[in-house]
Write a protein that binds this DNA or RNA. Structure first.
Lengths: 244, 244
DNA sequence: TTGTGCCAGATTGTCAACAATCGACGATTC
DNA sequence: GAATCGTCGATTGTTGACAATCTGGCACAA
């Protein structure tokens, strides 16, 4: 990028096919980030005119971006009435974690027979990165790093459909954690929360890994459930008449 | 619906909130049906102007409908270049079936402890419906009935996220079967293909059910693989310059 | 007071015109 | 003859204006 103006033709194109970004794609990213970072809380209205002004685009691309986020489950809409950021119920969280248990186990099942040392090393590395962000008290980074840690298994599985499914779950998880973070100030994953997880990954018994995944999810859903019950309304209602 | 014109106010609205359908929603349905029925084969170009004329809408709603189908995995697009119906590779089919094995097992795991007699009866009923359409030599109905049969487990699980995941898999499966049907004339699911499946569902051992699901999928991926290899190009290329 | 109907504002849905980009074809040059 | 460059048609991306619909509140009557 830094040397793209050295010549008329795009030098970068020599190395990789990179289609010019569309406004829509840009909006999807920015809007998704705004939602997942908690800038626009669950339940908050997403008025098209307001957003198109905020992002300085017309409503066309914006609406298409919204469609995409709707399909990702981050946004819900009612025809002719309104659009708002999705809210998470206790049942939703249960569903996320139960499905995640199944998918993550399956992902490990794909990786396991390969006894991939590079994978394990990277797992350790990402945990170190996570710990570093915890030590630095950077909650937002901690959330992303936690997700990246678990995301590795899905990447390593090489299973595109599985990765897609993880993407859907990941977004919803992030949605919840952002709310948690906003409410508590600190999300508070323990420094050692992945110790046994990694230990199992380096072990020889797949059943142990399987049990560890289930246990990790159980812990996750526990904290989550407690938090959600203590905070019946974490949404940004009312749905209408707010200028964002 | 039959009595909606008996009075000025919509009588149906008394019982259920039913927002007026939008053009976009209509297009999504029609386009999805056209693709899944094989009217527009995998790889065929989806030119916006042609489609907007065919469905008699402007490009706005049409594009939004396309976004949705893209997110469902039925359509792929390259910015400024073109859009076409997704194609299925052998790897894709493997991924579909492997993930489906996991999800369907999980779905059964949810239903199993309830020992739900209504569920089992319905399972039998849907199999009868499937057999009827096979006997009637109605291939298109057979495909839908086969999917409906398996869909019951996901519905019965009551797991919304799981149902969503099944929806994604279902579309891709249908995409393949439509191609299969178009190429072979007959898809040919056996009349008795679900006998052991149902037997296991009525049995007491969950492990037997689990094994049966895996076996069912193994048979599916086998047929599928053989077919795809025998037919390296089932797409409707070229991607550009065709009026559909 | 309670219920009912209507009205106005807000919001999303739809459209048609215009701009940006891409891919292929052919002219041109060495 | 091969490679390169420019041009042109096709296609998608973007915009602003207009239409359809919903929600909430207010006037009015029982």
């Amino acid at each position: 990028m830094a040397f793209s103006d050295l010549s008329t033709s795009d030098v970068g194109a020599l190395f990789e096919r990179v289609p010019k970004a569309t406004l829509r794609a840009h909006i999807v990213e920015r809007l998704r980030h705004a939602i997942l970072a908690g800038d626009i809380p669950p339940g908050a209205p997403l008025v098209e005119t307001a957003l198109s002004e905020r992002f300085d685009v017309s409503r066309g691309p914006l609406r298409e971006a919204l469609r995409q986020l709707i399909e990702e489950g981050l946004v819900v809409t009612v025809p002719y009435t309104g659009t708002h950021v999705a809210e998470l119920s206790v049942e939703d969280v249960h569903e996320i974690y139960s499905l995640r248990t199944v998918l993550e186990t399956f992902a490990f099942e794909q990786v396991w027979p390969r006894r991939d040392d590079r994978f394990r090393a990277e797992l350790r590395r990402r945990n170190d990165v996570l710990i570093a962000s915890i030590d630095a008290d950077d909650d937002r980074a901690s959330i992303l790093n936690e997700l990246d840690f678990h995301g590795l298994v899905y990447e390593a599985s090489g299973h595109k459909l599985l990765q897609r499914a993880w993407h859907g779950l990941r977004g919803r998880l992030q949605l919840y954690w952002a709310a948690h973070h906003r409410a508590h100030g600190r999300r508070g994953p323990k420094r050692d929360s992945h110790d046994s997880y990694i230990e199992a990954a380096f072990g020889a018994e797949f059943d142990a890994m399987k049990a560890e995944i289930a246990d990790h999810m159980r812990r996750g859903v526990e904290t989550t459930e407690k938090f959600l019950r203590s905070m019946p309304d974490l949404s940004g209602k009312p749905k209408r008449g707010v200028k964002s």
